[in-house]
Design a binder for these strands. Structure first.
Lengths: 396, 396
DNA sequence: CCGTGCGGGTTAAACGGTTCACACCCGCCA
DNA sequence: TGGCGGGTGTGAACCGTTTAACCCGCACGG
């Protein structure tokens, strides 16, 4: 189209190394400029040598296509050639360039896991268990995982959306968020492959969820405490941080009311899901309502904090105070006294969530709302209520 | 349709949502040459539409080079053009294709973290703290992290090597391994960017290390116990799992010998770094040597296990038995009694390791062997030795 | 003896950016 | 008036792989 424009010159000048072309360049250049070699102009990118398909092809005396086909064990190539090429591949230590493969159409399987932005998320056993499960399942399916943290910056730049749009990740698992985190709304319209892990989201059905059956576990715990004679049961809750704490509150309220007990407002305290918070919550509750005989915390860390508070205040657990947690963290069994708690199959939840996500990526369209079963684990932090009267006295 | 240029066809096929762009495309098509084009040959890869640099360029009426430069805020482009192009970028929702960027020279910043293959590595607070630190530092530097687990399969296929060679990762942090893991030798010859985190490797200098000063912490703990009058101090150790447990053993031996105490073989037990193991180790030691007055465990989980054993056996801690741990896990303070332990700045170690790795990637060649300071945290699991005689009696 | 089919390999066009080298414009100075 | 230089934008080579399309030689059927 442009014909004999200056472009023609450019084209030749940067031509390839092939000798025939070089000859042509030489001829043309002679008339214009008699200086010998201008400059061999080195490769633009001074990347550390990496064996390419091209190199193997050259060595084996075949085309890159052939080598590519050998690498991908395409049946088009005859056994003889295949063997030959394979030898060179081996010998040169060829390794495919992932970026090039992706660019040229290969699917890059990878899942993103979105975590809260706190400093110590990974050091939290709750998240750790979920992540372990996710990592296991992902490994089984040959999926890579990339972790992201929902920093303000991250959220502001809508990276949770763009990651999926640019296919930086095929799907996303979100941990530790709940309705209050408005950025989750961004997923609403999109048909993104997102699964909320062990979280309670109001608009169920909009987003896939895999979690634990908090209600049943809470019910078991409450039944147990009530059967031990406890009526003055306080609840250490937490608002942030995903989890279905609201379910627990509901069950608690319902269970109490079936026994005709109406908990005072002061029987609730927010323990922020931490040991410190649990300690403070226990202090607050027991300070105002010393008649409380049992504490039910919606996670183990807070229960452990409460247990620590009780011990510090010389309250004998479980004689003076029963404590029940939620999670069954690995070390809950090693508390003194060992902690009665509701077991959550967090590892399985993580694994299941990961698998459901992979299913979605592979085309499943029906929504899921898996709730894995939970159960009470009775240990030594729970006992008969101290205010049971004569029966209790004899028991104690 | 048959008369159109292949380009026009292609463009229309991937039509974007924006009407303005379509108009422009349409205009272009009209002016396109009317000669009967051979065949419109549809795109090879049926990728879901994605706005490309090309599309933006066409829309804005500039070249892709210009758009690329705008995206990368290259000063070559005048403010006027920049603004114009930016508008289109915004409007079309352009997002760069990562693979293409990488392929064409952009560095892909990403670090690999190699973990032991056990099921619950992420749920381990020790690793969790390290990983948190790493994640924080990586986030600060805009580096992505990818986790890998050293499964037999992984090791056999030498993936730890190839990952670095193929630049799937620029560098690697290895956690929880020690000399016994022979695959680390594979790194020996290579000048790979690898840093061992909180590990003791015999061939120091060969590999960069960032860890804690186990010796100083152990020394403080031993001094403290000895000053409390303890002489019959047993050690709960662990062989696998990285960490500098050998340093602790050395310090322990040295400290004991300065007080003229020669520990019996039975004063050592391997607790496998777990609570259960610590429990069993304590049982074994105290079963055979009831005269032991103090237990020193090289990590908190084992100390917690030992503490649990003692409580179960009605040994009052610290009156009958002192226990010291190592790590200062978040929940060590919430044990009953709260655990005296050596604080390891694991978060900082992780962060530092990550930063050192980035330095290496950026060219630093001198080896590092950072040892972050540790210190004893005295809590309530330690007290005067019970065998101190009259003094001790009055104290108790 | 000439299509025809096919096994086995090659060519070259994508994939989507980045960037180098050049073109062009405009003002300025000798 | 012509040369020079700085500021801007463009063209197209290049990154390394995949794969559709083509090509060649040979065996085989009519």
């Amino acid at each position: 189209m442009i014909g004999e424009s200056p472009n023609a010159f450019k084209l030749k000048q940067r031509a390839t190394m092939s000798s025939t072309v070089e000859e042509i360049i030489e001829m043309e250049r002679v008339s214009a400029d008699p200086t010998p070699e201008p400059l061999p102009k080195p490769r633009r990118h001074r990347r550390p040598k990496a064996v390419r398909l091209h190199d193997v092809a050259k060595a084996a005396g075949v085309s890159v296509a052939t080598v590519s086909m050998v690498v991908n064990s395409n049946p088009r190539i005859s056994p003889a050639t295949r063997k030959r090429v394979q030898r060179f591949i081996e010998q040169l230590g060829y390794l495919p360039n992932r970026a090039a493969q992706i660019l040229s159409g290969a699917r890059q399987p990878s899942l993103a896991v979105l975590l809260p932005a706190q400093r110590h998320t990974f050091a939290d056993v709750y998240f750790g268990e979920l992540i372990s499960g996710i990592a296991d399942a992902a490994a089984r399916h040959g999926q890579a995982i990339v972790f992201e943290r929902a920093t303000p910056e991250f959220v502001r730049s809508k990276k949770h959306i763009t990651m999926l749009e640019t296919k930086a990740a095929d799907g996303m698992l979100i941990l530790g968020f709940n309705d209050m985190h408005r950025f989750l709304d961004d997923f609403a319209g999109t048909k993104a492959n997102v699964i909320a892990v062990d979280s309670k989201l109001a608009r169920d059905g909009t987003m896939d969820v895999v979690g634990c059956d908090y209600r049943s576990g809470a019910q078991q715990a409450m039944n147990y405490l009530l059967q031990l004679g406890h009526r003055k049961i306080a609840l250490i809750t937490a608002t942030g941080g995903g989890r279905c704490t609201r379910d627990v509150v509901d069950v608690y309220r319902a269970a109490m009311s079936t026994y005709g007990v109406k908990p005072a407002d002061g029987w609730f305290a927010d323990g922020r899901l931490t040991e410190e918070g649990g300690d403070e919550a226990a202090a607050q509750i027991l300070g105002n309502y010393p008649e409380i005989t049992a504490l039910f915390a919606v996670n183990d860390k807070m229960a452990i904090g409460a247990l620590h508070y009780a011990t510090r205040k010389n309250l004998a657990v479980p004689r003076d105070l029963s404590i029940v947690g939620f999670d069954n963290l690995r070390h809950a069994a090693f508390m003194n006294p060992s902690l009665s708690t509701v077991h959550l199959p967090l590892h399985e939840v993580g694994a299941r969530a990961c698998e459901r996500l992979i299913e979605r990526i592979n085309g499943r369209s029906e929504p899921t709302d898996d709730r894995l079963p939970t159960h009470l684990v009775v240990r030594n932090s729970t006992g008969l209520a101290r205010d049971l009267g004569p029966l209790a006295d004899s028991a104690a």
